[in-house]
Computed example of a mutant assay.
Amino acid sequence: MARPEMVADDRGLVHGGFTFGLADYAAMLAVNDPHVVLGAAEVKFLAPVTLGETMLAKAEVIGESGKKRQVRCTVSTDRPVFEGSFTCFVLPGHVLDC
């Protein structure tokens, strides 16, 4: 749910970074590996999110090649607000150790 600390202005607009962060997190969950990292993202913000709205993210791995995973993700409230394609990589170990 969009909380007051997510709001960017006095009209209740939620900063897009929170929507992107939710989608990124959903993509990581879809890959489901402790060593997954985001490599790239191509996204579209389709509609604004406002204070009090509940965002629902859905993500699906749509391609896999070696350590690379392509993930499609959407975020919606009562309408679509975000869609994106994430390129993720499964590393052999923790990113700080690679």
Rank of each mutant, 00 (worst) to 15 (best):
T19A: 05
F82C: 10
T19K: 09
G21S: 15
G16E: 01
R72M: 09
P80A: 14
T87N: 09
C73K: 01
I62V: 15
T19M: 04
F20D: 00
F86I: 04
P80H: 06
C88W: 03
L51E: 12
V61E: 05
V49N: 08
H35G: 05
N32K: 11
S65Y: 05
M6D: 14
T87C: 06
V14D: 11
I62N: 01
D9H: 08
L13C: 03
L13I: 13
H94F: 07
V14G: 12
G21V: 04
A41M: 15
E60P: 00
M1F: 10
L29Q: 15
E60L: 11
K67L: 13
G63E: 11
C73I: 11
T54L: 11
E60W: 01
L56Q: 13
I62D: 04
G66V: 10
I62C: 09
A57D: 08
K68C: 01
P92T: 14
A23P: 08
T54C: 04
F89T: 08
F45I: 04
R3S: 09
G63R: 13
V75L: 08
V75Q: 07
D24Y: 05
Q70V: 11
V31Y: 03
F45A: 03
S76N: 11
E5G: 03
D9L: 07
E42G: 12
K58C: 07
G17V: 00
M1L: 12
E83D: 15
V43W: 11
L38E: 05
H15Y: 14
V95M: 08
V14H: 12
L22K: 10
T74G: 12
V81I: 12
L13E: 00
D97Y: 02
A40P: 07
V14P: 13
C73N: 03
L13S: 07
R3C: 00
H15K: 04
Q70C: 00
A23M: 06
A41T: 15
D10F: 11
D9A: 10
C73R: 00
G52H: 07
G12D: 04
N32W: 04
T19W: 06
T50I: 14
V81W: 02
V71W: 04
A41H: 12
S65P: 00
V43E: 05
P80G: 08
V90L: 09
L13V: 14
V75C: 09
V61N: 03
A23G: 06
K67Q: 14
F20K: 03
L91S: 10
G16K: 09
T54G: 01
G63K: 11
D78Y: 07
V36Q: 07
E5S: 11
V31P: 02
H15I: 00
R69Q: 02
N32T: 05
R69K: 15
V7P: 07
M55D: 01
D24M: 12
L29N: 08
P80N: 11
A40Q: 14
K68G: 01
C98W: 06
M1A: 13
C73D: 01
D97K: 14
D9F: 09
F18R: 08
E64N: 07
L38R: 10
V43P: 08
C88G: 03
T74P: 04
L91R: 06
K58I: 08
A30N: 03
L51T: 09
L29P: 02
V49I: 13
H15V: 03
Q70P: 00
G66F: 11
T77F: 00
A47Y: 01
V36W: 07
F82M: 09
D9W: 06
L29M: 13
P48W: 02
G16N: 10
G66N: 09
P34G: 06
A26S: 06
